[in-house]
Write a protein that binds this DNA or RNA. Structure first.
Lengths: 347, 347
DNA sequence: AAATGTCTTGTAAACGTTTACCCGTCTGGT
DNA sequence: ACCAGACGGGTAAACGTTTACAAGACATTT
């Protein structure tokens, strides 16, 4: 049931069969019909591997994410996958945790499979990985936080804007003691968010004392634990900004357990805007980072790189902006204590 | 940078290079070293496509799910993916909705890519699809609800057990007016769950009047809407069994909105036991269907089929059992009205 | 010492396509 | 009637591997 068999059956050459299967317009309709009939009769299924071998293009993209299990990512996979089928591509997926070794392995194996490009949409230690991999000819797109790495398409996420909005929103509600639950700090993106938070606080004339910066792990459990610690403080925060929505869900959950009313006794802001965020109680005010936009950006970049490889050499850069979406998990603060300004406070 | 170049560089034949790359033990260590050095020097990356072409095995499995966006599935993808890398396989993923056409397309394209097997882990109209596809030589595993389809590995899910436990649990809490929110009824699996519910009710001497059987769509929004309808009934249910957890989350959400206390005024039971179920408020009592077990079952079946294709011909069958996990979303009913038994009530 | 066997390496075919190139036929212009 | 050109179709090489088979080197047996 290969092309040769069809050729024999239709009494033409393999070249002709190939041509009609690829709808080259110059072939005699009579022959074409014979070929098509033969193919249908035998249930012919083209072998993409062979095709890829000679053409050098596999029509496959690799997508590596850190935790498919974190609700942030499925939406990305969905969008990326839909774009893939729409454009006649297949999607090879790997979920590698934030483990650099596993990412490297995944990407390497994708390259061995001769994918036409790979997108690393991950919140891990991406930069060195990207730098390492750029050597290969495979188009690569990744989200980066450090310096732009040459030879790959860098997607940069502007955490700053959304976080600044969140902080301003909280300040407008008269919050001053604002806590921040970070992601795992070994991840550069987690550091970046933390930095963005600190800078936004400073900008607005607020101070974030170290005991209000607690490290989480991007999971619901982490949020639960973090609130547990925050609540033991002599002076509790009146608002908490979480570095992802899962953490916020954990905080809200634990607040309920501890009989702390959200938003009246405690304001909570998330980050990511996963679909579920609007359905928890209270609906979560959160910083939106559009998953579908991110996926689309990555896919387009890959597609573009494949069409004209020349372009790929110079790394181009695109940025995804974040912004605050207001829901019901924040409220005006009730009689919070003003805190003394730290010595290094800048007007 | 293909095998021939390495061969030239190491002054051996391509056959030898291939042998050392596949660690055939009989080759002279001296030569092996030369080859390995040459490969390292040139940064040789094997071409899996070519390898697959001659060996006929691509070391790739396809996984098709219905909605990667439904939290039930990411866990499946995770487990399946981990098993894949652990066994040296790659995973091609497709998320096709419950659209038969898209599923067919996805599977067809996977077959064109010469995957070694495909798992259809989906809650859609699977049976006809599986039957159609069985013609190809590709090992296929799918979850089925109708008659067992020959030539493929059927994973059958025993909805009955878990649902019966749920109904019994509710009955023990003195609930009699128990509503059931189904999935989209065009899906056979949704029908199966509904049937399991009705039978369990009957078994235990309870009646499920039609107005308490409302059709949902497996989403949070669907749960919200369904509770909206249920609440407008003259006689409200005291308990609701949902055919998936997302629906239950919607119900709980809307109950909060309507100031209905869960579990005291309304007991809610979910289905699936997604990870999040334990973190909503109140923690959700739900029927567990182990995602990782399902994924493992599917993967093992595929692997087994690949090892000895003879086995594949006769379709083997395996079943996944469900069972109730108790948390906090159910409680004793407070003064509910007994309802008259229907005429067709048996014993 | 010749014959046999074992062990390692090389040669070349094969996997299923695409495609550059060539060849034959037909059209139309002179 | 002859030739140029256009056009449709066939031949075969190529893609990068694996592997059956052959061949050569060397050890062992008679």
């Amino acid at each position: 049931m290969d092309i040769r068999e069809i050729a024999k059956l239709a009494r033409v050459s393999t070249a002709t069969v190939s041509r009609v299967l690829n709808s080259v317009p110059t072939v005699n309709p009579k022959l074409a019909k014979r070929v098509l009939d033969a193919a249908a009769l035998r249930g012919y299924v083209p072998n993409t591997q062979a095709r890829a071998l000679v053409s050098g293009k596999s029509r496959t993209f690799g997508l590596v994410v850190s935790e498919i299990t974190n609700p942030f990512f499925p939406q990305i996979v969905e969008t990326f996958g839909n774009l893939a089928v729409a454009n006649g591509y297949e999607m090879l997926l790997a979920s590698t945790g934030n483990d650099l070794k596993r990412m490297e392995l995944a990407v390497r194996r994708m390259i061995e499979r001769r994918v036409d490009g790979v997108a690393i949409l991950t919140f891990g230690m991406e930069d060195s990985l990207l730098a390492d991999l750029r050597v290969r000819k495979v188009p690569l797109v990744g989200v980066v936080v450090g310096p732009t790495v040459p030879g790959v398409t860098n997607i940069r996420i502007d955490y700053r804007h959304g976080i600044r909005q969140a902080v301003q929103h909280l300040a407008a509600l008269r919050h001053q003691r604002i806590a921040f639950i970070t992601g795992p700090l070994r991840l550069m993106s987690a550091m970046a968010r933390k930095t963005a938070f600190e800078e936004s606080m400073r900008e607005i004339g607020l101070y974030a004392p170290p005991e209000l910066l607690v490290e989480g792990d991007h999971t619901v459990e982490g949020g639960v634990a973090a609130l547990g610690r925050l609540v033991r403080l002599a002076e509790r925060p009146t608002a908490i900004l979480c570095s992802n929505d899962m953490t916020a869900i954990g905080v809200i959950r634990e607040a309920y357990e501890l009989q702390i009313n959200v938003p009246n006794q405690l304001s909570v802001v998330g980050f990511d805007d996963i679909h579920l965020a609007q359905f928890i109680t209270p609906p979560l005010t959160t910083v939106q980072m559009s998953q579908s936009e991110l996926a689309t950006l990555a896919f387009q970049a890959l597609l573009a790189a494949r069409e004209r490889p020349a372009q790929t050499r110079q790394s181009n850069e695109c940025v995804l902006v974040t912004s605050l979406v207001l829901r019901k998990s924040t409220a005006l603060v009730l009689g919070a204590q003003p805190i003394p300004r730290p010595p290094d406070f800048i007007s």
